[in-house]
Amino acid sequence: MKTTLCYLEQEDCYLMMHRIKKKDDINEGKWIGLGGKFIGNESPEDCLLREIKEEINVELLEYVLRGVITFINQNNYTETMYLYNATKFLGDVDLNCSEGELAWVCKDSLMNLPIWEGDKYFLEKLIKGEPFFTMKLCYNGDKLIEAYCNDEKIK
């Protein structure tokens, strides 16, 4: 499966979604950025722009592909996620979302939220403004068992 994930940035905060509304959600109870699954022959940018428009009704004006993350789960699940950061958008963010509760969260508070363990590795890189990277996060269910960044083992 291919997906996008975007962290909209404003005043040292990221727009985060607390996934508490959707049934049978793999991310249930977690805080994540915005995005979703590719449809048809979408490019990563097509998917990103569509998902952001659907979820919060804004048009992204400035966004950067920051990394590509491969998630592997021992339950025979593999996902390739294109990770973006956006700093400019047109429109007022609609905080009413059918998938979860939205909130602007200060960067220095992110690691205290219930997030996926592997997300901490790529969020740290986003916050520090590090250049493009690739990452592989290997899970057994909800437990992160291995992590690699640019082919170097980090867990």
Rank of each mutant, 00 (worst) to 15 (best):
W31N: 08
F122H: 15
K136Y: 00
I56A: 01
I69V: 15
G36Q: 10
I154E: 14
S98Y: 13
E101F: 14
N112C: 06
G91Q: 06
N85Y: 05
R50Y: 13
D92G: 05
H18F: 11
N112A: 13
V105C: 09
K21L: 09
G141K: 13
K37G: 00
F132Y: 15
T70K: 15
Y82K: 01
E99K: 07
E51F: 05
E59P: 00
V68E: 09
I56L: 02
L61R: 12
V93S: 03
G100A: 02
C149V: 15
F38M: 12
K107M: 11
K21H: 14
L144H: 07
N41T: 11
P131H: 10
E101V: 15
C47V: 08
E45S: 13
F133I: 07
E146N: 10
K23D: 08
C149D: 13
K128D: 12
N27A: 11
N75W: 01
Y121N: 03
L49V: 04
K120A: 13
I52A: 01
T78W: 03
G33E: 02
Y14L: 04
G33V: 08
N140K: 14
V64L: 11
Y121E: 04
L60Y: 03
I72W: 00
N41F: 09
E117A: 12
G35D: 01
K120Q: 14
K107R: 14
E45W: 13
E62H: 14
L61E: 15
E51D: 12
K153F: 13
P114S: 09
I115W: 11
E146H: 14
K120P: 02
Y77G: 00
K143N: 05
L65R: 06
K53F: 01
D119N: 10
A86H: 04
K125N: 12
K53N: 04
Y148H: 07
G36I: 10
R66M: 03
N76Q: 10
